[in-house]
């Protein structure tokens, strides 16, 4: 992953400003797609913050997303709390959880880490159900608000913008530099005096915070929260595939992965409803065989060859 430039930040600002007008231009269905795009952009970008430079593939997105949704559902349904206070609380819980998990597991590397994070969502789902069953006792988790898709879209846009800004700052800081060295060779990084565990935990925590925030914002859209649905492992795979399809070389990579993926997914879904899961497999193959560095890698390769020719 390369450090981000000021030029990129300006472009990102312009894009965010333009994206803010989408709810005024689109009707129900396309606005709904817009909400999906923003949700996955925020999730995939925050995934990229950590996994991009370190090359640790995390399948924990669903765990944090689910925690956010569950905290909002439980708080608003069982304790009559406001949405905003629960949104803040879910960010805190997501962060603390990620920090604890990070401390326990980021000493692991490679495939051990992947497998652990895959099991994490399942573990938290069961834990949450157990707590709800034994201590909270619930009459269903209802999240009834007056938010429309446009409101949720803007909230997600702001979240995605914050993720990008944070990533931009980190990538230009000492921490970002340290992470790139860890990604290159962790042994070397330790050898030159980088506290690799701390750096990784900090970044993993931000992923947890943003995952939980996105889950919390989506909760009013679903209106009724069931642990089995908010902790769906499919979400984790979606996030990883979209991020890799875009390319992990640049912070803006996920955006160019999320949009085409969701458009194709939705087209296949509405025309060949039973085959849509195939898209996931084909996307995997495309990444492995044709786009090992994602769209970003391919774009930069083309740019470099154009420059070479001229």
């Amino acid at each position: 992953m390369k450090p981000a430039t000021v030029q990129e930040l300006i472009w990102a600002g312009v894009l965010v400003a333009l994206a803010a007008f989408w709810p005024m231009m689109s009707n129900g269905y396309w606005l709904g797609i817009g909400v999906d795009v923003m949700m996955y952009t925020a999730l995939a970008t925050s995934w990229m913050l950590f996994s991009g430079p370190t090359h640790y593939i995390s399948l924990a997105s669903a765990a944090f997303f689910g925690v956010g949704g569950f905290v909002v559902g439980s708080g608003m349904s069982d304790y009559d709390a406001s949405f905003w206070s629960m949104l803040a609380l879910s960010a805190v819980i997501g962060g603390v959880l990620a920090a604890l998990i990070g401390l326990a597991t980021l000493r692991l590397s490679g495939v051990y880490f992947v497998i652990f994070t895959l099991g994490l969502a399942e573990m938290i789902r069961n834990l949450v159900s157990w707590v709800q069953n034994n201590f909270l006792g619930s009459r269903g988790l209802y999240v009834l608000t007056d938010f429309t898709d446009a409101h949720l879209y803007w909230m997600l846009l702001v979240t995605a913008g914050c993720v990008y800004l944070l990533g931009w700052i980190i990538s230009r800081s000492r921490l970002g530099f340290a992470l790139r060295i860890i990604g290159g060779d962790e042994t070397v990084a330790r050898h030159v005096g980088i506290n690799t565990a701390t750096a990784k935990v900090i970044l993993f925590t931000t992923t947890g915070v943003f995952g939980a925030i996105v889950g919390a914002i989506i909760a009013p859209r679903w209106s009724y929260i069931e642990p089995n649905q908010v902790f769906s492992p499919q979400l984790s795979f979606f996030v990883v595939i979209m991020a890799l399809l875009g390319g992990s070389g640049r912070l803006w990579g996920p955006v160019v992965g999320v949009i085409p993926f969701l458009l194709i997914w939705n087209w296949v879904d509405s025309n060949f409803s039973n085959q849509s899961i195939l898209v996931l497999g084909v996307a995997f193959l495309v990444i492995v065989y044709f786009l090992p560095h994602g769209f970003v890698g391919r774009i930069e390769q083309l740019r470099a060859s154009a420059r070479g020719r001229s």
């Binding site: 069961n126 069953n133 009459r139 269903g140 988790l141 009724y224 929260i225 069931e226 642990p227």
Partner: peptide
């Protein structure tokens, strides 16, 4: 069953 409906 420890799921919404069962718990309720």
């Amino acid at each position: 069953v420890a799921d919404a409906f069962g718990i309720e």
